Amino acid sequence: MENTTTPAVTPSSVGIRYGLITGVIVTIISFLQLALISDPETPVRWLSAVVMIVAIVMAHKQFKKLNNGFMSYGQGLGIGTILTVVAGVISSIFSYVYMTFIDPSYMGRVMDLTRAKMETQGLDEAQIDQAMAMTSKFSSGPLTIVFGILGAAIVGFIISLIVSAFTKNTRPEFE
C-alpha cells in the first residue's frame, strides 16, 4: 500500500500564494488609479490597504483550515509579512514599468500638483525646491521598486502584527 499523506501546509506557501493573488489585485487597482485619476491624494489609494487586510485575514483562515484550525501568532505574522512583500514586489515592478515606459509624464504631473499644494500651504520657494528635489530622487528609477518593497514590508508587518492578534488560534499545550 502506498503512503498518500499530503505535505503539511507552511506559512510561506500560504503567504506566497495569497501574495501573488493580492499583488495582481493591487496592481489592477493601481493601474486604474494611475490611468484614470489625476490626483494621487484620492481616497481610492486606501483601497489597496483594505485589500491587503482582507487578503491577510483570508490567508490566515486558509492556513487554519489546512492546519486543523490552529495558527500561532508567529505563523500569522509570517504569513501576513510574506504576503505583503510578494504583493509589494509585484505592485512596485508594475509602478516602475508604468512610470518609466507607459506614462513617463505621470511623475511630472504629480510633482506639479505637489508643488501647487505646497505653495497654497505657504512654504517659501527654497523649501519647495528642496522638497521637490528630494522627492524626485526617491520616486524615479529603480529606487521606486526598492522603496515600494520596503514600504510594503513595513506596512505589511505592522498590519500583520494587529491582524494576527485577532486571528491566531494556538494549539493547546497538552494535547
Rank of each mutant, 00 (worst) to 15 (best):
W46Q: 10
V50G: 15
Y96A: 07
V50A: 15
G69V: 11
F63E: 09
I82N: 09
V86L: 10
M107P: 00
R45F: 08
I56Y: 02
K65T: 13
S30R: 11
F101Q: 09
H60F: 04
S48K: 11
T42F: 06
Y106D: 01
M107E: 02
L34G: 03
Y73S: 05
P104V: 02
T100M: 12
S38N: 09
I90R: 06
L32D: 04
A49W: 12
V51H: 03
M58E: 02
F70N: 12
A87W: 09
P104A: 06
G88M: 07
V50P: 02
Y98M: 06
S95W: 00
S30N: 14
A59G: 08
S38T: 13
N67Y: 08
A49H: 05
W46E: 00
I90Y: 11
R109D: 12
I82D: 03
G74F: 08
H60V: 03
A59R: 13
P40N: 09
V89H: 08
S95K: 09
I29P: 00
I25H: 03
N68A: 15
V86R: 11
L32K: 05
Y98C: 06
S105H: 01
A49R: 07
K61L: 06
I79H: 13
P104G: 08
S92G: 03
N68E: 14
V24I: 15
F31A: 14
M99D: 01
G108R: 01
N67A: 13
M71H: 11
Y106A: 11
Y106P: 00
V44K: 08
I102S: 05
S92L: 05
Y96H: 05
I28C: 06
L83G: 08
V44W: 15
I56W: 01
M111L: 13
G78T: 12
V97M: 10
T84L: 14
I25L: 14
A87L: 09
Y73L: 14
I93C: 09
F94V: 06
S72C: 11
I90M: 15
A87T: 04
L32Q: 01
S48V: 08
F94A: 07
I25T: 11
A55Y: 03
S95D: 08
G88P: 04
F101E: 01
I29F: 13
V85W: 03
T27R: 03
R109C: 00
K64E: 10
K64D: 11
